[in-house]
Structures are given as C-alpha cells and as structure tokens.
Design a binder for these strands. Structure first.
Length: 460
RNA sequence: GUGGUCGUAGCUCAGCCGGUUAGAGCGUCAGAUUGUGGAUCUGAAGGUCGUGGGUUCGAUCCCCAUCUUCCACCCCA
C-alpha cells in the first residue's frame, strides 16, 4: 500500500506541548473566574440530533453545520434516481434522509436542549459554564477555524439585569487577568426592534441590523445603498439617519433614542433596560472600557434583549467574546417563558491575541524538574529508587532511557529545559550521594538524598 | 457559498527565457570528545518540486482540475 501523506482537515489544528501550555492557561484562568462567580460546569455531546441544531442559527448558520452521514447503508430505502419519472430532490430534502446527526455549532443551543431535558433536576436560576469545542463548516481565515473552543457562561431562569452586569464583570475580570485591554460593546435587541417599528417597517429588523452593523466598515453612503437594495423606502432610510449618525455620550444617545422611540412600547422597554444596565455598570469600577453602541447587531437570531460583544483594543481580530439575552430559546424544546443570558469566550482567538501581544506568563510551562542520567544497568536500578522517592514528593522527574553518552543526555535535558540533572554513577552509589548538576549555572555539587529532594522542592 | 492568494528538504527560502545530476541557511544524525549541554570544526542522511491530468523533444517553471495555506466578502468566537 502506498504511504499516504499525513494531513488533517482544513481549518483544524494539532497542538504541541508548548501550545497546550498556553491553551490550558487560558482555559484554567477562565474556568477559575467562572467559578468565582458561582457557575458550575456541564458538558454535552459533540454530536447532537440534527433536529436540535437546524433552524436555530438562521439560514446561513444551517449551511455551516457539519452533518454526519447515517451509519451503514445511508441510501437504504431512498433512491432518488431509481424512478426517472420522479423529480430528483434537492439537498435540502435529501439531507434529513441520509443524516440525522450533526456536530454542535455552538454551546448555547445544546445548553437550551439540556435545560429542557433536565428541567426537573436543575436548580433555577441555573448558572452553568461549559468549555468544549464547536465546529463550523466555514472557510478558514484569520481568527477563524473550523474546530475551536468556546467557553460559555449562561444563566437561565431569571430575567434580572443583575446577570447582564455579572457577565460584564466576568468579561472585565477575565481580560484583566490576561492583560488584554478590551472594549465591551452592548446594545439591546428591543431598541433595534423599536427603531424598525419607528421607521415604519418592523418586518425589516434583520435587514436594518445587518446593514447598520457595517457602518464603521463601509460608511454611511453604502449602508443607505444597501438598505435600499434590501427594500427599504427612502422615507424609512431618512428616518434612520439620526440613529446612524448618533454620537456623543451614552445619555446623549439615549436622549436621541427616547425621542425617536416614544411611540414604540418595545423600544421604550429596551431603553429602560439599557438605562438600568448602564447605571449599575457605572458603580462597578470596571478596569476595561465599555460602551453602548446602537450599531451592534449580532446575527444570531435568538437574541431578544441585551447583546454583548468584546473586542481587543490593540489588535485587529474579530470579536473575542460575545453573547446576549434570549427570552425563549428553551421554548422550541417545549419549555416556554424561561429567560436566559450568556456569553461565550473564543479561546482560540484569545490565544492568537495573547500570542501576538506576548501576554503569556513565563511560568506556564511545567517542564520536568530533574532528569536522572543513565550510566548503565547497575546504576539504573539505583537511580530508579531515588526517582521513585522524588516522584513520591510530587516532583516532576524522569530518567534517561538508556546509557547513551552523557553529552547526549545533557543535551536532552537542555533542550527540554530541565533545570537539574541527577548523576548517579558508581562513585555516588558507593558514597550514597547524588551529584546534582544545575543546568542554568552549569555548576555541580554532591549532596545526600534529603538535601537533594529539598533542593528540588524549593526550585520547583 | 463568492473572489483572490500560496505550496520546492523537518523549518525558512533560492532556483535565470521551459533545458544536464534541483541548491543554501537553520535543524537532524554521526564523529572530533567512552562522566558533563549550549560554542567550534569535520562528515552524512534527507526531495513523488502539494496531487492528478494536459501542452512540449523536454515541465519545479506554461495550461486545466483538485487539495491545502493565507486573505477579503458573507457570517461569526
């Protein structure tokens, strides 16, 4: 058989030990912040029933779902070309027949499913965190992978704005610990809905949000042009101008919106929530910036209230954290009227930002503390005993597998950044001492076992 | 899904107008040095030129397809 070139699917990556050190540092930090705020972990399967996933992320989202072909003969019982009289079904019709499972696209929808399924066993408000990979059949590019980790915190079973505040505090704490300066932008879907109402086309909420989301990128003119293409009339577009051009402090913006939305109940509710949130946040003394931004839209269509997005200040990268409130995500699974709010940290993007900004602490690598050199079968037996003692003390240690030249053994230690090498040869066995070489200074000294171990303990 | 881009040794990259046996640096391995790493020197190994077709007397080079990389759009973490 011809050897095949080893490869992994597009948009996926292998992680070497040095990279894992950074990744674990990120996961551990985020996890410990989540726990400080009283969230508990759950996990859900990588694969879900396709019916759980489809239709939750909009039409675009459905296209990005990885679907799993049914096991066995997935064509059993369906034969689209057997009868030439019948029309050949499109992939939309065919997909559910040959695939009934898919890889999860995010952690929020599986969580909603989880909550409904276990509703009688959970304590509400239910606060959970979840750190697991998700998959999207997207085309890879900067900061975009087909397999990546999300770190979600959500709370369901309460509509309290206290949780919005809590999530923004979590964001602040996480990025402070990472040393990344961020800006947390938020908006409220109810305000966007109110705007759509106010300009007389409530049905074009999505079109409006998608278009104005691009304002920073493409400018006012193109946004208006796009709105026109999406079917908005000139009057509506003109009515939208004050929103698009809105500047100044949060209270300035709120004032503008109050004028515009005075006839929209939904809009007024949104403004009220916004004001409440801002007044709470003002008292929190956060270290990172935050701001209200009407132009923030977010495409995920299950959001109904506050929406949140976080960007790193010093680097061009998509959002590194995002989320919002969803009033009825559990409704589709048969549990209506349960409000939830949550955010998701993009661990892989955070890694990229940390790497580029050089924010990883030096101490995250945990290399072996001591290597026992190998001088042959006799010495090996003796070294093994000392090694066991050292390991009993919890000191990461290893022995070189064969009696290669010392040069080679030391080089191995040097490359693995192992700070100490224990040399136990015939002389040492006789005297009961250990020769310890300090790889940083190059110096070497003889010591008894107890001193040896306490020396390693202090250094490790 | 749309548009563009990249692919030559483990890594970073040369390779002239299409022409003999595809090169360099770094790394790897061995030795100089049989109980002492990082330096130096000597030597060696390592290539389906991403893959598959095509044009040509002849293709790493030109054409087509495909995979992969990176980037923009869409969308998003």
């Amino acid at each position: 058989m011809a050897v095949q070139k080893p490869s992994i699917p597009k948009g996926t990556r292998d992680f070497k030990p040095t990279e894992m050190a950074g990744r674990n540092y990120i996961f551990n930090t985020i996890r410990s912040v989540f726990e400080v705020f009283g969230y508990l972990p759950i996990e859900t399967p990588a694969i879900e029933n396709l019916t759980t996933l489809t239709g939750k992320y909009g039409e675009e989202g459905d296209k990005l779902l990885f679907k799993i072909l049914n096991s066995g003969n997935f064509l059993d019982g369906i034969s689209p070309v057997a009868d030439p009289q019948l029309p050949i079904p499109g992939y939309r019709e065919l997909t559910p027949l040959i695939s009934e499972k898919g890889l999860r696209y995010d952690l929020t929808v599986p969580f909603a499913r989880f909550v409904v399924q276990h509703q009688n066993e959970l304590i509400f408000p239910f606060k959970r965190y979840q750190i697991q990979p998700v998959w999207r059949a997207d085309r890879p590019q900067k900061g975009r992978y087909r397999e990546f980790f999300q770190c979600d915190v959500d709370v369901v079973g309460s509509a309290s704005l206290l949780y919005e505040v809590e999530l923004i505090q979590i964001i602040d704490e996480v990025f402070s610990r990472f040393g990344i300066e961020t800006t947390t932008l938020f908006n409220n879907r109810k305000i966007l809905a109110g705007i759509a109402e106010a300009i007389g086309s409530p049905q074009s909420l999505t079109d409006i949000t998608v278009a104005i989301d691009k304002l920073d990128k493409v400018g006012l003119e193109k946004v208006c042009q796009e709105l026109k293409e999406r079917g908005l009339n000139d009057l509506a577009i003109r009515a939208l101008q004050p929103v698009l051009l809105m500047e100044g402090t949060i209270s300035d913006k709120i004032e503008t919106l109050e004028g515009l939305l005075k006839n929209s109940e939904t809009g007024k509710k949104g403004i009220e929530e916004l004001k409440h949130l801002c007044s709470l946040l003002k008292e929190m003394k956060l270290r990172n910036k935050w701001n209200f931004d009407v132009r923030l839209a977010r495409g995920l269509n299950y959001y109904t209230g506050t929406i949140i997005e976080v960007k790193a200040n010093d680097i061009a990268m998509g959002s590194i954290c995002g989320g919002g409130r969803y009033d009825d995500l559990t409704g589709i699974f048969g549990l209506p009227g349960v409000s939830g709010v949550g955010i998701s940290f993009g661990a892989d993007r955070i890694y990229d930002v940390m790497a580029e900004l050089n924010r990883f602490p030096e101490t995250i690598q945990q290399p072996t503390t001591v290597l026992f050199a190998n001088f042959g079968p006799e010495e090996e037996r003796f070294a093994l005993q000392v090694l066991a003692e050292v390991r009993k003390e919890g000191i990461p240690s290893e022995i070189y597998p064969d009696a290669s030249k010392l040069k080679k053994q030391l080089e191995y230690a040097s490359r693995k950044q192992i700070p100490f090498v224990a040399l136990i040869g015939k002389d040492e066995i006789e005297s009961g001492m250990v020769a310890v070489k300090d790889m940083n200074t190059g110096g070497q000294s003889l010591m008894g076992r107890e001193e040896f171990i306490s020396r390693l303990k202090n250094k490790s």
